[in-house]
Design a protein around this nucleic acid. Structure first.
Length: 743
DNA sequence: AAAAAAC
């Protein structure tokens, strides 16, 4: 069918839709308005304008008993205010309309002046107008109807909507804020007062960095941190690193043999090193010095090898190639060495405050307002080192508070040596935070921005899929901290709009992933454009964080970091996890049905699918079954992505079907169930996906579906992830499915 | 092979 045919069909459908009066009433004065049923529990009570706008209106679908009550009233509001229906629905629209829909997207606004809201036009490149759609028509047809209807309302709103507000808002806020406690001029004097009273006041802090460490209770690492020659995570050798993205695989046996040349004793070490060694300080200290010549290589533990080996063993028989060397297969799960790290013990952190760690009063207060009243272990572990100017690698499991671990000290640090830099028009940013997905960048900014603002610093988001105007405008006005994704950052750099030469603190969140093929090169270029030294002559800092930080970052570390300290939290193993892992072995043809039963429960659920098309199809299937569901993947334009995620966050849908775009970093409160409709690619993907639940110590369940033929694959993944889970046969209607769904 | 990340 030619494009114009689709358009015609859409318009026809559109007319039908309107004839039916689907779009709703905005208030009780309008026909069709229904107040929300108060007897219905809501997961979230926030119903501000933006949320309503973001609300999904499923008008075209038969009202289902289980969502009717919540939808009834609000749905209509949304329609009026928001302009889109089902997430997917908008897709066609966005593409066709060149992304118009997006300017209204409240979701990002969040009062962020610099938030890039204005739609540019064709929107996300990804769904480029002509981008091939990945979904079959049948799915899409109905969706488009919705869009259209929705769009129309968008228009009505548009004029009054923030198109103007927004532009005003930025400056306005600045003004507002200035007089408040953020005013720099005020701050200087006040700070001294405040701090003076405190135990760790600023003046002390600088010197304290070194001296204090020993004194601090929680600071177990002090002893090592200094003399840690090998801490220089530098990759064993260029090779290791180079294997970067595609190379990780080079770690398979064949390569290992070769490597033996560098390090004869490595082989034996594999077994010795491992468990006992990791947290054994004495051991480490000793080990460290016995090889002065190869500090660099040593930085990575090779303790994981044995596991890989056993995985290899599994593989051979499976392929009936026992006699042949295991072939290199990209799909195989390869586990790299963990980085050797200082382990901070959670118990040692009790009673420690952010102020104790060296975080100033304004920031501490802001953290408290955000709910971070006292530091989590990973924060206590890394903050002092970041403040002392070191390069830091941090590994904390999913949901353990890594964002604040780098965000708070980063801001503190900028404020310290940025003293005197009053808000200057067009000043170049001094800090950069990179994340692998736009959603994650947005989320990080939501955490970092308030912290920055509390001391008068500004952040801006630089990521793709949204118009350039606002981002460029923010840069022209001048910002202090950039939070973004590699593509757009690089883009703006190359266009001469973004000057990174004054960036003295760079953070890579999900650092190992940032070393994947496709990310590594842009990241290298970006880091290369940052400053090497601060105006004070200190070395510019690089901070790398991830729940699965391993030797994949080796090349980056060797190229850009200097004697980094490496931190992790002791005892963060699966045994201490709050996540219950299950694997259901299902018949391929029954999989969709089992999935539907699994997501029918009341709790918030994230379903991971391997492809965008499957994610989309599942979301449609669930909705057709009366389950409130939406999708998140790269085929959606950014406004829809943001909105759909918001639908889950706000509780308007219970189920989000996503690709791995949502695997890392995304925080949604109270996700009780993660379902993997397709097994993850590797153990890291497993850990990150499952980490969407069980956050901050809460409980969660992860259910992975595998067809019979893929059992061995998932076993290998579980083994590498160090997770124990039984494989259980399951079919639609089985008790186990119902039991898991009920959680 | 897919997904993500600029247009």
């Amino acid at each position: 069918m030619a494009p114009y045919d689709k358009g015609a069909r859409q318009r026809a459908d559109d007319r039908v839709r309107h004839a039916n009066g689907t779009p709703a009433a905005r208030s009780s004065k309008h026909r069709g308005y229904r107040a929300a049923d108060p007897s219905q529990p809501r997961q979230k009570q926030r119903w501000d304008a933006e949320e309503r706008r973001g609300r999904s209106a499923q008008g075209e679908r038969p009202a289902r008993p289980n969502w009717e009550p919540r939808d009834g009233g609000q749905r209509r509001d949304d329609r009026g205010g928001r302009g889109y229906d089902r997430d997917r629905g908008g897709r066609g629209f966005d593409r066709d309309r060149g992304g118009r829909g997006f300017d209204r997207d409240a979701p990002y606004s969040h009062g962020r002046p610099d938030a890039p809201q204005a739609p540019r036009r064709a929107g996300t490149g990804s769904q480029g107008p002509s981008a091939p759609r990945r979904f079959d028509r049948d799915d899409r047809a109905p969706r488009r109807d919705d869009d259209r209807g929705a769009r129309r309302f968008d228009r009505d709103d548009r004029p009054q909507r923030r198109s103007f507000d927004r532009d005003d808002r930025a400056p306005r806020r600045d003004d507002d804020r200035a007089p408040r406690r953020f005013d720099r001029d005020d701050r200087a004097p006040r700070r001294d007062d405040d701090r003076g009273a405190r135990r760790f006041d600023r003046d002390d802090r600088a010197p304290r960095r070194d001296d204090d460490r020993g004194a601090r209770r929680f600071d177990r690492d002090a002893p090592y941190s200094h003399g840690r020659p090998d801490a220089s995570q530098a990759p064993r050798r260029a090779g290791t690193g180079s294997q970067g993205p595609s190379a990780p695989r080079r770690f398979d046996r064949d390569d290992r043999g070769a490597r033996r040349f560098d390090r004869d004793e490595r082989a034996p070490r594999r077994d010795d090193d491992r468990a006992p060694r990791r947290f054994d300080r004495d051991d480490r200290g000793a080990r460290r010095f016995d090889r002065d010549d190869r500090p660099q290589r040593r930085s990575f533990d090779r303790d994981d090898r044995p596991q890989r080996r056993s995985f290899d063993d599994d593989r051979a028989p499976r392929r009936d190639r026992e006699d042949a060397r295991p072939a290199y297969v990209p799909a195989d799960d390869v586990k790299l060495e963990k980085l050797q790290a200082e382990a901070t013990v959670a118990a040692d952190v009790e009673g420690v405050t952010f102020a104790d760690l060296g975080i100033g009063g304004n920031i501490s207060r802001t953290l408290a307002e955000m709910g971070a009243t006292s530091p989590f272990p990973i924060q206590a572990a890394t903050i002092p080192d970041v403040l002392s100017g070191k390069d830091v690698l941090g590994r904390g499991r999913t949901g353990s508070g890594k964002t604040i671990a780098f965000g708070a000290p980063l801001v503190e640090k900028l404020m310290e040596h940025g003293g005197g830099t009053k808000r200057r028009m067009g000043r170049a940013p001094r800090a950069l935070i990179l994340a692998p997905t736009r959603e994650l960048a947005l989320q990080i900014d939501r955490t970092v921005q308030p912290i920055a603002r509390s001391v008068g610093l500004f952040t801006t988001q630089i990521y793709g899929g949204v118009p350039y105007g606002r981002q460029e405008g923010a840069l022209e006005r001048g910002v202090d901290i950039i939070v973004g994704t590699p593509g757009r950052v690089q883009d703006l750099m190359n266009k001469g709009k973004l000057d990174l030469s004054e960036v003295v603190v760079s953070v890579l969140d999900e650092a190992d992933h940032m070393c994947d093929l496709g990310f590594l090169e842009p990241v290298r270029e970006i880091l290369s454009a940052t400053a090497e030294v601060t105006p004070q002559g200190d070395r510019a800092q690089k901070l790398l964080f991830s729940a699965t930080l391993d030797a994949q970052v080796a090349s980056l570390v060797s190229e850009f970091l200097h004697e980094p300290s490496v931190h992790e939290v002791a005892g963060e193993d699966q045994a201490s996890s709050t996540i219950d892992h299950r694997v259901l072995v299902v018949e391929q043809r029954q999989k969709d049905q089992v999935l539907e039963e699994l997501v029918a429960g009341d709790g918030k659920t994230i379903v991971f699918a391997r492809t965008r098309a499957y994610a989309e199809r599942l979301a449609d299937q669930f909705e057709d079954a009366g389950i409130r569901a939406t999708s998140l993947h790269g085929d959606l334009n950014q406004s829809r992505r943001t909105r759909n995620l918001q639908l889950l966050t706000s509780g308007r849908v219970n189920v989000l079907v996503a690709t791995d775009v949502a695997a890392r970093g995304i925080h949604v409160d109270d996700v009780s169930l993660v379902v993997q409709a397709d097994a993850p690619d590797d153990y890291k993907a497993y850990l990150h996906r499952s980490g969407r639940t069980g956050r901050a110590g809460k409980e969660g369940t992860v259910v992975t579906l595998v067809p019979r033929g893929r059992r061995r694959k998932i076993e290998g993944i579980l083994e590498n992830a160090e997770i124990e889970a039984e494989l259980v046969d399951a079919a639609p209607g089985d008790g186990i499915v119902a039991e898991l769904a009920a959680r």
